[in-house]
Amino acid sequence: MAARLQYSSPSFQKFQLWVNQWQFGSGWWPATLALYQRLGGDDEKLDAIVRFWAGEPTLKSSEVRRSLRDHGLAGAYPIGKLPPAESLHWQRLAFCAQLCRAIGFGGLVVLVEEIELIAQYSLLQRVKSYRVLGHLFGTTTLPEEIKKAPLVFVGAVTRDFERVILQEKGDWEKAPKIALQKHMSEEVVKAGMEAISQATPLRSCLEAREAIQSMWHRVADLYQKAYPDWVRPSPPQLPELYSTTTVRSIIRRWITEWDVRRYYSPDTEIGIVEDEAIKSTPTEELPELEEDEE
């Protein structure tokens, strides 16, 4: 994304103004953005800045201050101590979302996949995870750093998580108590669990046969853009649909078949075997994921 910045564009100038006026980051965001513009062909330093934006600990304050002095920017871009890790995580999300806007997109969509893996954590780890989910999906519990950022968060969790973990395992009652003991916000932890319990069930493919047929054309259009020389086949007959069949598996089936035909021959005989078994949420806590509560 950074490589697509156009410094003379109105969208970049708006982005730069936002960065310079942003209240978070102790000056690190405007300083690193200014350096990114000035460094030119210094690929190693440019790469370090981009990786810092992306979340890696690649920059030290002494190095940044030295680079600012070397380019005559020290007085214009003073930096303080690097913000605490949690705040910095939220800041990076907001910064990257605004960076998306600067190169012409509407913002950033963050996909949180396989939330049900939380079930294998210790109770304390689950509470911490609910806290993060509460920050991401709660209506009143967004961190200040990302409140006005062009961000959309979307999560996915298995249907039985609420019953198995929140109810039967007792997290509805246990998690808020642990949160209070560990000086976490009870409201945020509850918001994370509520986000799971209020998730929208996906429609069964059995109810969406016509929509899936029309989706084939949209997916094929995207595939054609990726591989312009691809020989586009006729729309296929849908495979037999079951109550557990997912749209994701159908799209994966199409792309697998197209990949094989594109690599070998459009006339290649293909047989695709799929395992449609849906596993329930694993409930056993894994000892290797335990952490020292201290």
Rank of each mutant, 00 (worst) to 15 (best):
L5A: 01
Q6F: 06
Y7Q: 05
S9W: 06
P10Q: 09
F15K: 00
W18H: 09
Q23G: 12
S26V: 07
W28V: 03
A31L: 02
A31K: 03
A31H: 03
L33P: 05
L33D: 08
A34I: 09
A34M: 08
R38P: 02
L39F: 01
G41C: 03
K45N: 10
D47T: 14
A48L: 08
V50L: 04
V50Q: 13
R51W: 10
R51S: 09
R51N: 12
G55Q: 07
P57N: 13
P57G: 07
S61Q: 14
V64H: 00
S67H: 11
H71K: 06
H71V: 01
A76P: 06
Y77P: 05
Y77A: 09
G80E: 09
G80R: 07
L88D: 01
H89V: 08
H89E: 12
W90D: 03
Q91H: 04
Q91W: 00
R92G: 04
L93V: 06
F95Q: 03
R101V: 09
I103T: 14
F105W: 11
G106F: 07
E113S: 02
E113K: 01
E114P: 05
I118K: 07
A119N: 10
A119H: 12
Q120I: 10
Q120R: 13
Q120H: 06
Y121T: 12
L123Y: 04
L124D: 13
Q125N: 15
V127G: 05
R131E: 15
V132K: 05
V132S: 04
V132P: 02
H135P: 10
T139E: 15
T141G: 08
E144A: 15
E144G: 05
E145L: 01
I146D: 00
K147L: 14
A149Q: 10
V154E: 13
V157G: 03
R159P: 08
R159L: 04
E162N: 10
K169G: 03
W172N: 13
K174P: 04
K174Y: 01
P176E: 12
A179S: 02
L180S: 14
Q181K: 11
M184R: 04
M184I: 01
M184A: 06
S185V: 11
S185F: 08
K190G: 09
T200H: 03
T200Q: 11
P201H: 12
P201D: 04
L202G: 07
L202S: 14
R203S: 14
R203Q: 11
C205F: 08
E207G: 03
A208P: 07
A208L: 09
E210K: 14
Q213S: 09
Q213C: 10
M215E: 13
W216P: 00
H217S: 14
V219F: 06
D221Y: 05
L222E: 07
L222Y: 11
Y223Q: 00
K225T: 10
Y227L: 12
D229W: 00
V231Q: 15
Q237V: 12
P239H: 07
Y242C: 04
Y242R: 05
S243L: 03
V247W: 01
T256H: 08
E257L: 12
D259T: 14
D259W: 11
Y263F: 14
Y264R: 04
Y264Q: 08
S265F: 09
E269R: 13
S280Q: 15
T281S: 13
T283K: 15
T283M: 05
E285F: 09
P287E: 11
E288W: 08
E288L: 10
L289Q: 03
E290P: 00
E293Y: 07
